[in-house]
Design a protein around this nucleic acid. Structure first.
Lengths: 146, 146
DNA sequence: AGGGCCCAGTCCATCGCGTCCACGGTCACG
DNA sequence: CGTGACCGTGGACGCGATGGACTGGGCCCT
């Protein structure tokens, strides 16, 4: 994890489809060397994958929200594989605090969202935060120096 | 946005570095046709980008959290460009509810995280949810049919 | 201090892939 | 029934990916 690795990570976080030869030009290294470094970053688990990002609203999911779940005892969304398979749910994170887990959901419409809330309610009170704009939708991870 | 487009979206959300010829094999289309369809998906804004995903903990960010901010009046993190530039903050979303925005942060250590909380406090009470495991770190958007 | 080892990068050659172009099938419409 | 637009196919060409052989620098051991 030297400066060269971080330069490659910066490029690939910004555009995962860059070719090795283009990467090699940007970081001033030969293409095979770049390929070798990227392979190592993948194998060591630093890079977990490459993903196209899709705009939910342009893909027919007009309503996005974050839902905090405060589940009662063992009955938790986290452990219900069937609930985790619901396609509206796009992320599930276990968190600390007065809520056991946090869901990120993308529903087709407000009525579809309401119907999802009804399905979630049996697991514990869902507390919804509707997502409005995102001043910072994402940021690339940079070297954690100081 | 027909079934072929969704098949391409599914493949590219799972692995953004697939070559056009590999894509063409998987969706049973010729490579130029695939390239043309992908180009249209990009231009129409359905695909917003391709990004390598980096494991924060393996990249030296051991502490991840979601922070709900309840800002006082106009003084809000959302409007402070300097605050938005802090490298620990990796996502900022405006949401509804008793909190004006939600931050996703990745700090190097608990002490660095504590220091971030101190910097955020002037904007309004930060309410932190430390991220534990993620039963569903992400899911690809699928066609919203019924 | 010298010798040898290992890691990482470069160079080169081959093969496969991306991209452009011309062509053809299909459908809607006049 | 002819025509144009759209979308996909196939071929050709140039670039990129990939594996192997070689080289230079750092490090340890003697």
């Amino acid at each position: 994890m030297d400066a060269m690795d971080w330069a490659l990570l910066a490029e690939l976080q910004a555009d995962a489809r860059l070719s090795y030869s283009e990467l090699s030009r940007r970081v001033h290294l030969s293409a095979p060397a770049v390929a070798e470094r990227v392979r190592r970053l993948e194998e060591s688990g630093v890079i977990t994958g490459y993903h196209a990002r899709v705009d939910p609203s342009r893909a027919g999911r007009k309503v996005s929200a974050l839902i905090r779940m405060s589940c009662y005892g063992v009955r938790c969304v986290l452990r219900d594989r069937q609930a985790l398979a619901w396609p509206e749910i796009v992320e599930v994170h276990r968190v600390t605090g007065d809520t056991c887990c946090l869901l990120r959901v993308a529903a087709t419409s407000m009525t579809a969202f309401e119907e999802l809330i009804d399905r979630l309610a049996p697991y514990g009170q869902p507390s919804s935060m509707m997502m409005l704009s995102s001043p910072l939708p994402w940021r690339a991870l940079a070297p954690a120096d100081e």
